[in-house]
Design a protein around this nucleic acid. Structure first.
Length: 849
RNA sequence: GCCGGGGUGGCGAAAUGGCAGACGCGGAGGACUUAAAAUCCUUUAGGGUUCAGUCCCUGUGCGGGUUCGAGUCCCGCCCCCGGCACCA
């Protein structure tokens, strides 16, 4: 004992003199604590080593129990585990532990998303190799993850930057190439001038900046590899059978943006132009008679052909200007519409009218056909454009009660068609069909659907990524590297400073190769794959992480896949989760997995913010470091505190104000479960029943709460239970058996939430190792049932009295009791009673006339 | 603008249409201590009222409604967060 402890011992002895019964009990507890005090640092390390040694979290392929695949999004190898990682992983670990105790063969794997720009940028900055940087980070993060005490199966660890993983990423690429699911195309791509690479649409933030470095993104025409995600658009809109948050499904639907409409041809007759028509897409074919001009996107290929000589200089200037315009400028909502006349006209085949053709940057080349039929009377954008350039506004849908007054804004609602020839008098909805049918009969167009979703741009001009396994042969063309030559290794000695060209392009030993088909000299593709493709299938690899003959072994795939429960941040609602669903369907079509969806149940945890309500970042100085908190309170306290803050899906500002509450609670658990309670078989019967009722009620509550991911209320229930145990011992003798039932339940229920202290106390209370392989306690509904309830008595809906009555009280008796209550009487007085509402076990409401 | 999700004590938050504020933090008071820390006990929505551990009123962003009864359901606003945004 330390000097300080001797001092406390002395103090405790004094308490004995000073106090009566209560003092004696308090002394006993303090003696216990002194003998062996809750010391998380010591016990946590000990058990982590023990669990690792015994491999108790190893998910075994030959385990006959029903398997449960619990997955939390693997972290990017940024360097340090922050509070956000804990907030994401501690509850998912708790849930996995719960499932394990419920008798499932649980797989909770962990790995690292290890390719990507930050590694390369950090490497450039510090002059070390991205591989070194990444692997050192993994080493550190793995250590930090282990301090969490999470039941990860480390034997299944997957690291995406290692050849035994990316070999199969490449293999998938070649399979997709064979099926035409990846293809090359020259297209305007989002270009980040700082990262010196192209970005997928999803990686450009709404304000037009780069997701990674916040630089304003520009456009560039580059030959790119694209993934044909649009081919799966309709299937991706089908979420049937999935238990996903509505918000995520809504976001994906929104992103895919399917709309139904009609493609309509407009006639062109320009000298030297072979095209005789130009097609537009519209969702409002009922307004086709109101077209007064046509607008093409500035980049539209027909623009140079249609432009008349007298308009050429102005048109070219405008095209150049909009090409240079950044996303930010284009996105400013308040921005006035601009455009120029091309000098050309086209014919509205339905009305026979000739309308002028404009170009304007409010029309996007990438959506629809890159041109729109402008109906200023019924589209606000067209309206503004028409007003500005003095173009006619022709009303073809009559607003209700319209007295032919001039429009001050477009009438965009549905209505009755007018000025529309044979269709006059037709309601819009019907008119859409009628006009479309007419157009189809005439061969001027067809009904169709289009999508906002674009194909996924998957090549990157950077070094630290998976090389694209493609060879360009002068004779054979574009050739995929055959399986027996995979992986195409990423050379270690490349000069990887960004230049806009892929760093691999300057690595002669890499670039120069021979064609796998004809054996003649050829060049390798030098772009690398977007890291989102790496993370598309890591969860598939977990099923058989060491399998060498394919990305996944079929028996393991059938056993473990798909993922039963996936948890992760909402920031991946579109990108990762949409790409992964797409990829899964590709893998399914390759016959490697079965089922249409990779993640059956999805849960998005909220985002944890700094104490100031802002995103945690070093520059703001609002970062809470988990390592410090673990050192101060232990992992159990810290993880439980994160779960206690509020509902998991909410996230929110994080501060440490309340952490002492959890610390105190765990100390109370520590003390109460080790208190020696005298065996008194003649303990008061009702006290025993009371204790058992509380035990079983708590089992029920905690089970329900964990099942619903409400860890905050599960912990509250456990605190109440702990408080009740203290009250029970204070109140008098306790039945030994009931007491042990209670403390056992307390420890078992606590085990998934705070695994170390639960294991330690499980041993202290004389149980066999390990608590984490025990069965989850079942509650007995009969024991949990209350014998008495509080019946609320209301008069006209206002609370007047509370009565404690037996649960099985009859309706008449309850009403009688309510009416005769002293507190109720004055409020009823002599008034006549209209009726009495009785809700069994809840209330009696006396309604006066 | 459109699509999602929210708004409850000093704070984090609870609450199948039925006792608003469980649980925890913080505060106040007390016990123990030379003292402090730790621990334990009491108390803590606001206002009024009482000899009282009494009784009453108000209260879940704002305004209406449905209902015997609304934090919860409906209608209309305001504000906050997330997503999308000139999508034809």
């Amino acid at each position: 004992m330390h000097t300080k402890d001797w001092r406390q011992w002395y103090d405790i002895c004094r308490i004995d003199f000073a106090k009566g019964e209560r003092g004696r009990r308090q002394k006993k507890r303090e003696v216990n604590r002194l003998v062996e005090r809750y010391n998380p640092t010591a016990i946590e390390k000990k058990w982590q080593q023990q669990w690792e040694q015994d491999e108790i979290y190893r998910a075994r392929d030959d385990d006959p129990r029903a398997e449960f695949y619990a997955l939390t999004m693997f972290p990017y190898t940024s360097g340090d585990l922050h509070v956000g990682h804990w907030y994401a992983m501690a509850p998912s670990d708790t849930y996995a532990r719960y499932k394990r105790m419920k008798g499932h063969n649980v797989m909770l794997p962990m790995g690292f998303d290890a390719f990507g720009l930050p590694a390369e940028n950090a490497a450039i900055k510090r002059g070390i190799h991205p591989y070194t940087w990444t692997m050192e980070n993994i080493e550190r993060m793995r250590g930090q993850l282990k301090t969490m005490g999470a039941g990860f199966d480390w034997s299944r660890e997957v690291i995406t930057c290692l050849p035994d993983y990316y070999k199969w990423t490449q293999w998938f690429f070649t399979k997709m190439f064979e099926k035409g699911l990846v293809y090359r195309a020259k297209a305007p791509a989002n270009w980040c001038p700082v990262d010196q690479t192209v970005l997928a649409n999803e990686q450009v933030l709404p304000d037009g900046t780069c997701e990674r470095c916040s630089t304003v993104v520009t456009k560039r025409d580059i030959e790119q590899w694209l993934g044909k995600i649009t081919g799966y658009a309709d299937e991706l809109l089908d979420f049937s059978g999935l238990q996903w948050p509505d918000a995520v499904m809504a976001m994906q639907r929104n992103w895919i943006g399917k709309s139904y409409g009609t493609e309509i041809a407009f006639g062109i007759d320009a000298p030297g132009v072979s095209e005789k028509e130009i097609r537009v897409f519209t969702t409002r074919p009922d307004t086709v008679y109101g077209v007064t001009f046509m607008v093409l996107a500035p980049e539209h290929p027909l623009v140079p052909l249609l432009t008349t000589p007298d308009r050429r200089s102005e048109v070219e200037a405008y095209v150049e200007q909009s090409r240079r315009a950044t996303e930010i400028e284009r996105l400013s909502t308040e921005r006035e519409k601009t455009g120029v006349f091309t000098g050309a006209y086209c014919k509205n085949l339905l009305s026979g009218e000739d309308v002028p053709v404009f170009i304007a940057d409010y029309v996007l080349l990438s959506y629809g056909t890159g041109c729109v039929m402008a109906v200023p009377a019924h589209d606000q954008r067209d309206f503004e454009f028409a007003k500005k350039y003095g173009l006619p506004i022709k009303v073809v849908i009559s607003p209700p009660d319209w007295q032919r007054e001039e429009f001050t804004e477009a009438f965009v609602d549905l209505g009755i068609m007018i000025n529309s020839g044979q269709f006059d008098g037709t309601p819009s909805e019907e008119g859409k069909q009628a006009v479309s049918e007419y157009i189809e009969r005439q061969g001027w167009g067809r009904r169709t659907t289009i999508y906002r979703l674009r194909d996924w741009l998957i090549s990157r001009q950077r070094y630290w990524g998976c090389p694209i396994p493609i060879v360009y042969c002068p004779d054979c063309g574009v050739v995929a590297v055959p399986e027996d030559q995979l992986p195409v290794l990423l050379p270690e000695d490349a000069e990887f400073k960004p230049t806009g060209e892929s760093p691999l392009a300057r690595h002669g030993g890499f670039v120069n190769t021979i064609c796998p088909q004809c054996g003649k000299p050829a060049k390798r593709e030098t772009d690398t794959i977007d890291t989102f493709l790496d993370s598309n299938w890591y969860f598939i690899r977990y099923a058989s992480p060491h399998y060498n003959n394919g990305p996944v072994e079929s028996v393991a795939a059938a056993k473990w896949l798909p993922v039963d429960q996936y948890t992760g941040g909402a920031e991946h609602a579109v990108m990762h989760l949409l790409y992964a669903r797409f990829f899964w369907k590709v893998v399914r079509d390759l016959g490697l997995v079965s089922g249409d969806e990779p993640f059956i149940r999805l849960f998005n945890q909220g985002q944890i913010l700094g104490p100031d309500g802002q995103r945690m970042s070093k520059s703001r100085g609002n970062v809470v470091a988990p390592d410090e908190q673990v050192a101060a309170y232990g992992a159990d306290t810290f993880r439980a505190y994160l779960m206690f803050l509020g509902p998991w899906e909410d996230g929110g500002p994080f501060n440490l104000d309340g952490i002492s509450g959890i610390w105190r609670w765990l100390n109370r658990v520590w003390n109460i479960t080790q208190d020696h309670i005298e065996s008194i078989t003649s303990a008061d019967e009702s006290a025993t029943r009371d204790l058992r009722r509380f035990t079983h009620k708590t089992i029920k509550r905690v089970t329900n709460d964990i099942e619903r991911f409400r860890f905050n209320t599960a912990l509250a229930a456990l605190m109440e239970f702990t408080n009740h145990l203290y009250r029970a011992t204070d109140a008098g003798p306790v039945d030994t058996e009931a007491w042990h039932e209670a403390t056992d339940a307390l420890l078992l229920l606590t085990a998934p939430l705070t695994p170390h202290i639960a294991e330690e106390l499980w041993a202290h209370t004389g149980h066999p190792y390990s608590i984490h392989t025990q069965a989850w306690p079942e509650y007995d509904a009969e024991l949990a049932r209350e014998e008495e309830v509080t019946l609320v008595v209301q008069v006209n809906g206002r609370l007047r009295d509370r009565l404690t009555v037996p649960v099985d009280i009859g309706e008449e008796q309850a009403k009688q009791l309510a009416l005769t209550s002293e507190k109720v009487q004055p409020h009823v007085g002599g008034a006549s009673i209209e009726r009495i509402v009785y809700v069994p076990g809840r209330l009696v409401n006396v309604v006066l006339r």
